[in-house]
Design a protein around this nucleic acid. Structure first.
Length: 313
DNA sequence: AAAACTGGCAACCGCAGCGCA
DNA sequence: CTGCGCTGCGGTTGCCAGTTT
């Protein structure tokens, strides 16, 4: 069982890259290219690094035209909308953001965007949520009997959809926002979905087009892309899509950039009143959604039931 | 001023798919 | 067809700097 390690870990250097190492790698690749073999590359250069490490360093840091620094509001919107639609397929999301790497996007989502959108967990409720997850079939406890599962990513997307749609059940009628193959928890299904996503979308990539001017365009584009992989899901009409997306754009902007265009209570005053459900509660000052992570076990199970019943998973 | 805590980011790890012999 | 090696990817970890107590 197992496979031989890609490099001799005893002799390979780990940890932060020195400027000298960066220069050696950069100079070599700029002059000779990667040669199609990352494993052999460090030996050719004389670097005591694993080939995978070299590849990562090149792709995430040394490669030309890498953008570092703050993400623009437009990039925020693109990341959010794609995450809602396709989940944590960072390489695909990053491909829509010229100059950004999947690692960058992933870190940015995990450290900033997610918190901004979903709020911070309350510790005392986090344990309850953990119980709920434990009671719900998950990747970890999914056994060979085919029990259904929701990944953590899927749960995040459910919560985000709920926030965007005010009413949890309303999200059921918004197929654009829901995962297709991403419903399955296995990496295999994700990867398969990646493949179909890429192969079926060859004429519509933002990397070629450059950033679009609005979130709606991205949502539309994404709906088209995802549509190719949405086996078994009824496609909404374009008019429905359009309405949903216009609504989503406003709500995403509000979630991302705070109360403003729609008013502080705009998100919650439509169907769900403050206090009705504590996963969508504001803090004492009503400034921010403070408790939106706070599923009770019953709520989580209800969400799961909704989700599974609609998509027959 | 120092310790503890938190957030951000770079890098590592391990799995799965793909291509080739 | 099968096994092996490589690549690509997403999740996780660890370090460091900034902030709070």
């Amino acid at each position: 069982m197992g496979r031989a390690p890609c490099c001799d870990k005893a002799t390979v250097k780990k940890g932060p890259w020195s400027p000298e190492e960066d220069a050696m790698l950069k100079n070599y690749i700029e002059e000779h290219g990667t040669g199609g073999n990352w494993i052999a590359l460090p030996h050719k250069i004389g670097l005591k690094r694993c080939g995978k490490s070299c590849r990562l360093r090149w792709l995430n840091y040394l490669r030309p035209n890498i953008k570092h620094g703050d993400f623009t509001p437009e990039e925020d919107s693109i990341i959010c909308s794609l995450y809602i639609s396709i989940g944590s397929r960072w390489s695909i999301i990053a491909a829509q953001l010229p100059g950004r790497t999947d690692n960058d996007v992933k870190n940015y989502w995990n450290t900033k965007l997610k918190k901004r959108l979903l709020g911070r967990r309350k510790d005392h409720r986090q344990s309850a949520a953990a119980v709920a997850v434990a009671e719900t079939p998950t990747d970890n406890n999914m056994s060979g009997d085919g029990e259904r599962a929701l990944s953590a990513s899927a749960m995040e997307r459910i919560q985000l959809c709920m926030q965007l749609q005010q009413n949890p059940l309303a999200a059921q009628h918004n197929p654009v926002m829901w995962p297709a193959a991403g419903v399955q928890s296995s990496r295999a299904s994700n990867t398969h979905s990646n493949t179909s996503f890429n192969s079926s979308s060859s004429n519509v990539t933002v990397a070629e087009q450059g950033p679009s001017s609005s979130l709606n365009e991205h949502l539309m584009m994404n709906a088209q892309l995802e549509g190719a992989a949405m086996d078994g899901l009824a496609s909404p009409s374009s008019a429905e899509n359009s309405n949903v997306m216009i609504s989503m754009e406003a709500e995403l902007e509000e979630l991302l950039y705070g109360e403003g265009s729609r008013g502080k209570a705009g998100v919650i005053d439509g169907g769900v009143q403050q206090g009705d459900v504590d996963w969508w509660s504001y803090d004492d000052q009503g400034k921010s959604p403070a408790g939106c992570w706070d599923f009770t076990p019953a709520e989580t199970n209800a969400v799961f039931q909704d989700y599974t019943s609609v998509y027959d998973i």
